[in-house]
Design a protein around this nucleic acid. Structure first.
Lengths: 325, 325
DNA sequence: TTGTAGGCGTTATCAC
DNA sequence: GTGATAACGCCTACAA
């Protein structure tokens, strides 16, 4: 690959001059500018961003740590994050932690070594303290780490309320909530909290099941749900804390000959693109994924540029009523 | 951030020595080694990978260009690619072209400027020639560019045959194929080719519809399918060239009160994770996504290391018969 | 066993 | 207007 020196030599000038035309800085005669352009053209020169990054101590790189891009919700989130990052000249390094503590740590180290300008954390397997002294531009999804670190979340409590309320209003007598693991202090837990409070308030029987800790194996969903239906065959309403979980539920219901929504009503969370394609189309709580992604990128950039930013970024959710309720 | 100099100063040695213990090269007394380690610890030193990349002229970065990670198939592919890349110390830069020619070009330039070690191309909006003189370690999904560039694909023709054959064997009298755009010379077109040949061979009435060129807007799927069913209400079998398309079909069938599989049988392609969760669970042609991803990473690494590699990497497919046929 | 010096490709600060 | 030169942080001959 040709370097700036090659261009300089070919154009009969020094690297300084080439650099100048490259960055449009200072005065340059049209003549030399043309010569330089020509040389660049001829050599098919492309400035080495690595060298640039080293010099300016900015990589224009954002690290994104999530459980996995292959999960529809995170895939969509990652898609939008990359989209908005690209708009302002940032690149995205993806890291799939698979909810493995060791990998998550490794990735954080790796991203820092690579001097990314900021890290967007959508995976949280570590304890809060471990993130605290990260000392890096960072933004968090669904987790409050400290007073300084900004976070993004949907209105989890509100979403939980909307979902639970809908089930109750539709006449469910015994409702269940299926959720990811609740031990980690994630803001998503507020969905469960709302579920509990509301069912108690209305005097409705309720049950909660959760996945194991730090395991990203969606196959366990099936066992969990079958188990639930076996122990509580009289459940007639379910609030799943993700659309993927809801999909599992719908399917198991299909095999168990439970009609949806006649026998069991179900509402999901996220509103991934495929949710509207489920059969029957899924009633769910919509998170504004695109806006949240955009916000994440902005929060990183603001920190990089040392501009002021909001610490709490809670986005409104919306009940999308389709045919599973 | 502390640099190697800070470490050297604190440890009372020179940067050379620090670099040596860092890279385990040459002889070093245990005493100094310990001092250095201590200093690194104390400063929380992390070597600057940007500087390293600049020096060794290898970035350990792989660029991945796909239509979008938010599409389940590409999300899964990206997940596996990152997984295997990570295993051998490579990082992945994602680029969502959205099947936009301009973006795709931009991304290629960007990746070259960032001196990624190789590019995995899963998006193809440009003409073959434009990729030819890329002069870069590259591997392609589902497209044959030139004699030198390795490509990966599933056995598209075989898959098309399996799918079509199943429909015929199940007694379908008029079958349809819905597909992405067929103008680009993608290997995936062989699915259609097999569909055409087989239906002709068996004397079965058939029709093909495709999406528009260079548009990544899955909302057009719906119009396309509705249109198809309006024009050809007597269709009783469908081969969709992706599971997502199949999902659209299933849903539209649901709304139109066409029973699946009784009235219309449908088979998809890819076997994304959610395919088994559709209602009814989708019969589909499974691509070995994980193996293909692994292969892509290997092909890049082999090129980087100037090791020999296969140019043609066609993976076998498998018919996964579930309940839509 | 450890240190000195030059280079990786750019940009920024001075000069001229 | 243009050119030396010294960084950026790291690695590696070559010396010592």
């Amino acid at each position: 690959m040709p370097t700036i020196k090659d261009v300089a030599r070919l154009a009969g000038v020094t690297v300084t001059t080439v650099s100048r035309v490259l960055n449009n800085r200072g005065y340059i005669s049209d003549a030399t500018r043309q010569k330089v352009y020509q040389a660049m053209e001829e050599l098919n020169y492309q400035p080495n961003e690595i060298a640039r990054s080293l010099h300016r101590r900015k990589s224009k790189l954002i690290g994104l740590i999530i459980p996995t891009v292959s999960h529809p919700f995170f895939g969509e989130l990652a898609g939008f994050i990359e989209y908005y990052a690209h708009l302002i000249g940032y690149k995205v390094l993806i890291c799939n932690s698979l909810l493995d503590r060791k990998k998550e740590k490794e990735y954080i180290e790796m991203l820092k070594s690579n001097r990314v300008d900021g890290i967007i954390m959508g995976s949280h397997t570590l304890e809060v303290e471990e993130y605290m002294n990260l000392n890096y531009p960072i933004v968090t999804f669904d987790r409050r780490i400290s007073e300084e670190i900004p976070y993004i979340s949907s209105d989890n409590y509100g979403g939980g309320k909307l979902a639970t309320h809908l089930l109750i209003q539709k006449g469910c007598k015994k409702i269940a909530h299926i959720s990811g693991n609740l031990q980690l202090q994630l803001l998503a837990n507020k969905r469960s909290q709302a579920f509990i409070e509301l069912s108690k308030e209305h005097g409705i029987e309720s049950v909660i099941v959760e996945t194991e800790l730090n395991v990203f194996d969606i196959t366990q969903y099936e066992a969990m749900i079958r188990n639930l239906l076996e122990k509580h065959p009289d459940i007639d309403g379910v609030f799943a804390s993700s659309d993927v979980m809801a999909a599992y539920f719908i399917q198991i219901g299909y095999f168990l000959n439970r009609r949806i929504p006649e026998d069991i009503k179900i509402v999901g969370y996220d509103d991934i693109k495929l949710a509207s394609l489920f059969v029957p189309p899924l009633t769910t709580i919509r998170q504004p994924i695109e806006e949240m992604a955009k916000c994440a990128v902005e929060l990183i950039v603001r920190q990089v540029n040392e501009e002021p930013f909001e610490r709490e970024n809670v986005f409104p959710v919306e009940l999308i009523e389709r045919l599973t309720t």
